[in-house]
Amino acid sequence: MKVMNASGRLIDPFNLQPEDFDPRIIAQTLSRVCRFWSQTSEFYSVAQHCLVMESLFDDIELKKWALGHEIFEGLTGMDIPSPIKHSPAMESYRRAEERALEQLADIYGLPKPMPKAIKLYDKRLMVTEALRFMNTVNFDWTQIADPLPLKVIGKPLSMAEAQQQFLVRWYELFEM
């Protein structure tokens, strides 16, 4: 199965190649994908989520992992909600996502596996974002993890702002 990305390149999301990991495509895609299955009160991109994640760390390797931890979404445009992603029907998706993270580590010289701190802060940031952008009437998001201070999110960025800031930060961190 092959799909076309913004560059016109055909990629197979379940068999990604090193040349598929184009930071320009990743930045464009993540800046257009809205968090929480687009059910937010206002547009908040996965690119901005990654930028906020990166800002939470001081260690350079953690910063790189934080910026790149949504790589599969950046290559495919699919941000699947956790309850769906963790269903048995999504096993091949989860395996492809894990392979993409391993490939990111191989391509950019990051330690494997992705550090536990990234997973922990990703969950905490998700709760924080949910408290800011999602309906909290019927669900207690804090049962998932302790939120971070809401101010870490800042104002929502436009698609263009998120794309530009993500790409600039990518080039700075990965010294491209």
Rank of each mutant, 00 (worst) to 15 (best):
Q164T: 14
D58L: 15
E161N: 09
D20I: 06
L67Q: 01
N5Y: 09
T29V: 07
E172M: 12
A130L: 05
V127Q: 07
L173R: 04
A89G: 11
Y121M: 15
Q165T: 09
N5G: 01
Q39W: 01
F43V: 00
E73W: 00
Y108P: 02
K63G: 08
L51Q: 01
H86M: 07
V137Y: 12
Y44H: 13
L75F: 03
G77W: 03
N138Q: 08
D140K: 05
E98W: 10
Q163C: 12
M114E: 12
K119D: 08
M90G: 02
E175T: 10
L62Y: 08
L150E: 14
A160N: 12
P147I: 10
H86C: 07
K112P: 07
Y121V: 02
W37M: 07
T29E: 00
E98G: 13
Q17T: 12
G154I: 05
H86P: 02
F133D: 05
N138E: 11
P81R: 06
F43T: 00
V168Y: 11
A66E: 00
I84H: 01
R94Y: 02
K119Y: 10
A96V: 06
D122N: 12
K85T: 01
A130T: 04
R35W: 05
P23R: 03
Q143R: 12
L167N: 10
E19N: 12
N5C: 08
K119I: 08
S7Q: 11
P88M: 01
I11A: 02
Q48P: 05
E175F: 04
R169H: 13
L150M: 15
A47H: 00
F43G: 01
D22F: 01
S38R: 09
R95M: 08
M4T: 15
Q39D: 09
E102T: 12
P149C: 15
K2S: 13
I144Y: 09
R94H: 04
P13H: 00
K155T: 09
